[in-house]
Design a protein around this nucleic acid. Structure first.
Lengths: 176, 176
DNA sequence: TATTGTTATACTCTATAACTATA
DNA sequence: TATAGTTATAGAGTATAACAATA
């Protein structure tokens, strides 16, 4: 397995610049030592958060042509896999509070990716479905993410390690 | 290695309730099928985010006696490992923007955990140090996290898998 | 009475511009 | 002029209470 690389970020600035002979060295050298993370990287929360931010950033860049946030993508995925479920069911499955789900859906509906259909059984409920355009956009998004994002993750981590990573993250989310 | 458990969440509600013989079955059964995550859990971003939220939530609970957020903890850790570095250096290492670091530091300083010391070399800079109390609180926090949080993660994942998880997350944060 | 979707609202995070004091 | 710390501010994301329509 590939070894984790040195330390990065400002690694290329390590070399001290040349200095005139007569010039006194200041108390603090002009090129500072890199900051040490110390034990911080041994705490799962820290590494998890930094990795999550990086992944989301890359995700957003990869689906930029479709202008989908990770949250919007997750809604499209879930409505596609579970048509005609109501807002509360979809929102709570994603850990989104019902009030906060309203604006998110408004946006998807205004872009004609998703529709709210008043349920005939229970007229309080709005059943959710993807539109034809919604399915098409989702398909394009999945292809973009697979070919630009996930494939590079497989290259970086290796197929087996990526599977193991997914399994552990799922276990934490479900059982911790 | 332990196998990932079934599905959870509402797993205990699966059994259909008894029903009067004369009562007609409504079109939709009163106990709905669980929502299927589908391929969503195969996308790293989704699993990463859910796991991160769970970990932070648990972290906050574990250090509740000390009232430290993950961000505050990371600042204490970094200042402890790198005394007399200035705000910009500490903030940027943590991915915190300088303006947002001000209030964070104000809070730590008001609680006498950390001090800003005007640098004699460059009077624009504030060098950061932990106070005696700051070191004590950090030590207690580390112990709480180790004994209540990380230890349970090791039990859940296994020691070797936890190490592998940390290595992969670090690799994503640094190299992806 | 309880639930679904909604509004209003508040609080935290994050992001950018611009000021001040120093260099 | 450039940089460190700061202020102000705006935008996401997230949280709770309460209302109308419906059950």
């Amino acid at each position: 397995m590939a070894v984790v690389k040195a330390v990065g970020a400002d690694g290329e600035k390590r070399k001290r610049p040349a200095r005139a002979l007569s010039q006194a060295l200041p108390q603090t050298p002009p090129v500072a030592d890199p900051i040490r993370l110390g034990d911080l990287s041994d705490f799962l929360g820290y590494s998890l958060k930094r990795a999550q931010l990086r992944i989301f950033d890359d995700f957003i860049g990869c689906v930029a042509p479709l202008q989908l946030t990770p949250a919007q993508f997750s809604v499209l995925m879930l409505v596609d896999a579970n048509p005609d479920r109501n807002q509360s069911e979809i929102a709570s499955t994603l850990g989104i509070l019902r009030p906060n789900f309203v604006a998110l859906l408004d946006e998807l509906e205004s872009r004609d990716l998703c529709v709210r259909v008043r349920s005939s059984n229970d007229r309080r409920s709005h059943n959710l479905r993807l539109t034809e355009k919604g399915r098409a956009v989702l398909a394009r998004a999945r292809k973009l993410i697979e070919t630009r994002h996930e494939i590079r993750l497989r290259e970086l981590l290796g197929d087996d390690n990526r599977e193991l990573l997914l399994a552990m993250l799922g276990k934490i989310a479900r059982e911790f």
